[in-house]
Design a protein around this nucleic acid. Structure first.
Lengths: 343, 343
DNA sequence: TAAGATGGCTGTAACCTTGCAGCAGATAGC
DNA sequence: GCTATCTGCTGCAAGGTTACAGCCATCTTA
């Protein structure tokens, strides 16, 4: 049976209010009495009852803001689903969640949305950031005002954000390398196509892949990293060029977007299935290619948790004062073949 | 802002108690008034406040029982960790959770533990079952007494259990087949070693593997399924025998236990790395073999969720009257290589 | 020295929401 | 007028927070 303030009060021979003051360091209490009460509470294994606290706190209501780009992929839908589930959960504890889905998402829009949410009285904000100095400044500004900010899906390195919820992209690249090393025949060459040279995630995936693949398969040559700037036509042209130049191309790792372009180029040259493709993200298009066998593996992220966790971490931080366990809350690196797509 | 009974009462021009009776169908209320109130509540999007309800319900406290075998593997530790986390969560809502870890786990012990928990006043029970008629009868008996029972990790087919939380073993076998088909060279033969012919999980994994692999790789022969009865020496002997008979053995799928035996036999014959092994479960031994490259893939289960979900589903069922969404709550089928072991 | 002021410490009661028991007022039937 | 029934209101309980009241010791001042 759970221990209550009343039980501790009885045990210590004081009133409920005094116990409250002792356990929550509210001052206005004799230090010796406070110590004694804390010791008793500790011995009895006291854990504050959420229901009681939520009820008592419902006067000054907790509001959590979420800034996210509008869902244009199944992955983003999952993220939003997770955030909405978290909202339903915390709303039933008396808190509020405001989710701002932004259509044409950029740094300016994100900053604007954050200011709006602060003006609306948000006590904490979760945001999917883009790499931008203004956004970083805004995050730092909010942190200074004691409004915790959580970055999710993507991170802002070196900012004052409370924590980051998302994938370990370097490790994601290593996972891809391990799989590629397993499925490639001897000899041949492998091509790495990344998105932007500056993007944190793309950079790390590429780095992880190159480092690990080099260790695993010395017999397979790695062609220089090409950048498609997340453009399918660009990816198509890169693939065409490489197919022409290297007849022994046997694998392609896509660290970012461009699957459609790559597959189109392979199809034109009748190289589907011969060149093995590993890519990222569970977009509907990628999933279709996976089902059709045009992609061998997809390295996915747990979108649901990336939406769910930030709201919950913020709620616990504001409601319970509980700090997040880690600065980086990495979500699972999911390996998807055509067989474990649904769960 | 969340809607409360009081707000609905004000809107409807009645008292809070009347709204309560209308929404909870307690009777003693004019049908027309009740309808009007329900309509208003619906329009306002009323969701009962968990905190208030938990506090009000704390008189007749909710107790949930968990019957589980004692942790002897990292997987089981994860399951227990999940269950303990769920306990901490619901205890803070005023409920109690009694976890019975049983050392020498068999059907008799499980039945006994279930009766103990019922006698202790449990309102719902989660159990890792074994395939046994007496256990099935007990589950049905409890269900008849309105004590919901959830099976997790393993299932009792055709019983009165509320739902099952665990892995889709058939699909797990198909995942293994897809991976095996990807990494095997042309020609050769693949061996399937299962545990017990009667075990539900082993049977389904084997079935899923055979069906899918047959479709994918007609060029690779499938040797008959061998049973090692979860014994390492048996697995070793099977592997030795098959290596002797079939020089072109290139892959082994283990649907149950016996990894150590298989690896030992391969080592003796100098066939490590040449014969590709795919197995199940994230035991510490299996993980070590995976890291050493002696196993290519492990098909894992999400142990944490298998411990966490049953307690939560029972709590929501008893506390909110909320039925579980599905009869089968399948947990993720996790593909592990040496690179995505930790998260 | 005694009355009054001050400040430190502790108790108390209201409040948040829901569930439930008990009670009051109205109406109908005799 | 009395009883029985129907209908709706009121009040209490749960645990934690908080504003406020109250108590006591110490300090100030005439």
């Amino acid at each position: 049976m759970a221990v209550t303030l009343q039980q501790i009060a009885k045990e210590a021979g004081v009133s409920r209010g005094t116990v409250d003051r002792a356990l929550n360091n509210r001052g206005r209490i004799n230090a010796e009495v406070a110590d004694r009460i804390r010791k008793i509470a500790d011995e009895m294994g006291y854990q504050p009852n959420r229901a009681g606290r939520a009820l008592a706190m419902s006067k000054r209501s907790i509001t959590i803001g979420v800034v996210i780009q509008a869902a244009d992929t199944p992955f983003m839908e999952k993220v939003i689903e997770g955030a909405e589930d978290a909202r339903a959960e915390v709303e039933r504890m008396g808190a509020d969640v405001m989710i701002r889905k932004i259509d044409d998402f950029d740094a300016g829009m994100a900053v604007e949305a954050m200011h709006e949410l602060r003006a609306a009285g948000c006590n904490g904000i979760a945001v999917v950031p883009v790499d931008d100095e203004r956004l970083k400044e805004t995050v730092d500004e909010f942190a200074g005002e004691n409004i915790p900010v959580i970055t999710f899906n993507s991170d802002i390195e070196g900012s004052g954000r409370l924590c980051f919820v998302g994938q370990d992209t370097f490790q994601s690249g290593r996972v891809a390398a391990g799989l590629m090393a397993d499925i490639l025949p001897g000899g041949g060459k492998v091509l790495v196509i990344s998105g932007y040279p500056t993007s944190y995630g793309h950079k790390n995936r590429t780095k992880g892949f190159l480092q690990e693949f080099g260790l695993l398969r010395e017999d397979v040559g790695i062609l220089d990293v090409q950048y498609d700037f997340d453009d399918d036509r660009m990816a198509e042209m890169i693939t065409q060029g490489m197919l022409k130049e290297y007849e022994d191309l046997t694998g392609i790792y896509l660290a970012a977007s461009g699957v459609h372009g790559v597959c189109k180029a392979l199809e034109e040259q009748g190289m589907e299935g011969k060149v093995k493709v590993i890519s990222n993200d569970l977009t509907s298009q990628n999933v279709r290619y996976l089902e059709e066998g045009k992609i061998r593996f997809l390295i996915g992220q747990d979108g649901y948790r990336q939406g769910y966790e930030p709201v919950m971490i913020l709620f616990e931080k504001i409601f319970d004062g509980k700090e997040p366990e880690k600065e980086f809350a990495y979500t699972e690196i999911v390996i998807k073949t055509k067989y474990n797509l649904v769960c």
